[in-house]
Structure formats: C-alpha cells, structure tokens
Simulated scan of single mutants.
Amino acid sequence: MRIGIDLGGTKTEVIALSNAGEELFRHRLPTPRDYQQTIENIAHLVSLAEKATGETGTVGIGIPGSISPYTGVVKNANSTWLNGQPFDKDLSRRLGREVRLANDANCMAVSEAVDGAAAGAQTVFAVIIGTGCGAGVAINGRVHTGGNGTAGEWGHNPLPWMNDDELRYRAEVPCYCGKQGCLETFISGTGFATDYRRLSGNTLTGVEIMRRIDEGDAQAKLAFSHYEQRLAKALAHVINILDPDVIVLAGGMSNVERLYETVPPLVKPWVFGGECETPIRKARHGDSSGVRGAAWLWPA
C-alpha cells in the first residue's frame, strides 16, 4: 500500500492507494500554521489511513516548496513555517520509516504520468494555472527535481516575446517574488482577473469573466484573447527547451474547455521551426492529482 499526503496552505489530505492504484482511504484535516503541529497532523493522518485499511504503507508527501540539495532544508515554501526545516528527516523520525518528499506540482506531474492524462508518456510537463502558476516535470513516471531542486519552477520565469502592452503590464504588476514579468502575474487565474481589471476597471473572478464573454463583454473577450496568446507563448518556450511528450493542465483555468481548442494552434508560430503537435490535455485526476502523485513517489 502507498500513502500520499498533500500538504496545502489550508488543508492537509491523505490518500491510501493499493499497488494497482485503487483508492482505499481518503481524509483531510485543516493545516496548522506551526511546524511541530504540522508533523503531528501528518502522523495522525497516516495513522488513520493505516487503521482504516489494516495495512502499513510507504509515505510520500507533496509540499508547496522543495528540499534544498545543498542544505537539506525546505526552501521556497509559501507555507513559511516549513522554510529552513529538515522536514523530510523530522517526518521520517516521527513516523519511524523513510519518507519521500517532492514539490506539489511535481507530484501532480507524476500522478498524471502514471495513470492520468499522460499515462505512459516518457516526459510530462504538468502545469498548475490557478490562484498562482507552477509546474512539474516527470520523466518515466518519476519526479525530475534537477540539481538545484528547482526543476519546473515555470511560474517564476518571464513571459517570453512580450509585446508593448505586456511590457507595460510587467511594469504595473510586479510579482510577489520581487521580480517583474513572471508568468505567474500573466497566466495564473489571478493574472487573468488582473488583466480584465486593467481593461475594464471592474474586479471579477475568472468564472465571472468567462460568463461575461458569453454575454458579449468586449473587455472580457479581449482579456481572454490576451490570456490564450500568453499561455501559448509560455508553453512554446517550454517546448523549445524540454519538448515534452504531453503537457497537462490543472488548476482553475484548466477547466476552461475552450483552451484545449484555441491554444495548440497558437503555440505553433512560437515553436522553433513552426512544427508542434504536442498534446495539451486536462488533468484526469484534477484536484486529486497532487495527493495521488505523492503516493506514487514510491515505485512498486
């Protein structure tokens, strides 16, 4: 049995999977904003899963950050109480077994590569376009973290091939990381809503903006046209570097079905040579991909 934990900013979820990938147990609890309490919360969830199934499992955990290969402690976590802590070692000690830990977006990539929208593909680039913007890489069904532990940190690269309006946007909308022009500011759901507010003066959610498109709102149509073009350029950049076999989209904006029709042809002109048939697919497991991928950090 494999146990996966998805440690989020507001909730922590556990799943237990059979070796065939069948869900045996699932539960979630609020995430405490304290390091030691977070460890105890995870230990409690693991205990619940093992009591419910009558089995002992391997444990994999997805976190909103990564372990530095140089210091062995967590870095870049927006759950800031984890930063600077030897989280995997402390959890392994508490649970009495080795724990495997990976970035939550990388867990999503593994989940979709193992038995999701990219099942069987060798190289998978999995994108999260929700409140923020991130990505993960899976190669042969395993996490690719890179030598610095930052593989897949796509959201904090600049939007490529910016036009004049995007250059103005970059100056007006700095990223929380302290830099300007990050993809997160353009192609997250938050970025989509920000662009609509720039154009219209109105503050709406992504869902509300999409509804305005159906009602003929010209600014909503323009904001979404911007979004499609920017997403296409950003994905073309990845294809020019990594050339993945499949790109998988997750997060709130991935639920806009129109993207799967409009974005692929928009990608082609930005790919070197103009040839690109890379499939862009919606995540099969949706919000469950992260916790399932954490369980799959342990191979059979």
Rank of each mutant, 00 (worst) to 15 (best):
P269Y: 13
G136D: 02
C182I: 04
E166W: 01
E215A: 15
W298P: 00
E112D: 09
G141R: 05
E55R: 11
A118M: 13
G120V: 10
E228Y: 04
I129F: 10
E228D: 10
N106W: 04
E23A: 13
G191S: 04
N157C: 12
V291H: 00
L242E: 02
D195H: 14
T58E: 06
R198K: 11
S111M: 07
P264R: 14
R281Q: 13
I129N: 05
C276P: 02
N202M: 14
N163F: 13
T10F: 00
V248T: 01
N140Y: 15
L199H: 05
Q122I: 12
A109P: 02
I241L: 14
T203D: 15
V114Y: 07
D287M: 09
R211T: 10
R197Q: 15
W298R: 02
A113W: 01
L101C: 05
D164H: 10
L222D: 08
D214N: 09
P264Q: 13
L17C: 05
R170P: 07
D195F: 12
G54K: 12
D287C: 04
V124E: 01
E50T: 06
A49Y: 00
A234G: 08
L297Y: 04
V173H: 15
D214P: 03
K179D: 14
H27T: 13
F192K: 00
H44A: 06
N157L: 12
H237D: 07
G130I: 10
V256A: 09
L231V: 14
L222N: 09
V14A: 00
D214K: 09
T53K: 11
A113M: 08
V46D: 00
R168H: 14
K179P: 06
E257K: 15
L204F: 12
L82C: 03
L222E: 15
A77Y: 00
D165C: 13
G4T: 06
W81G: 09
P158K: 06
E23S: 11
Y196T: 03
S188T: 10
G57T: 10
L48G: 13
A294T: 07
A234R: 01
L297E: 03
R97M: 12
A236M: 04
T205F: 02
G216T: 04
A218M: 14
A77N: 00
A283D: 05
Q229D: 14
A109L: 03
A232T: 09
G189D: 00
I239K: 02
D6C: 09
A294G: 06
P279L: 09
Y176T: 15
A121D: 00
W298I: 02
P279Y: 05
L199E: 08
F272Y: 15
T131W: 03
R100W: 07
S288K: 15
E277S: 12
W161Q: 08
L242H: 03
K75S: 10
D164R: 11
P158A: 10
P30S: 08
A77W: 01
E22W: 07
G4E: 01
V291P: 00
R93C: 00
G9V: 06
G4C: 08
E275Q: 15
G189M: 02
L199A: 08
W81M: 13
P279Q: 12
L183M: 08
H44R: 09
G293A: 10
A171C: 09
R170A: 12
G189V: 00
G4I: 03
G57V: 07
L266S: 06
A295S: 05
P174Y: 08
P264I: 13
V74K: 05
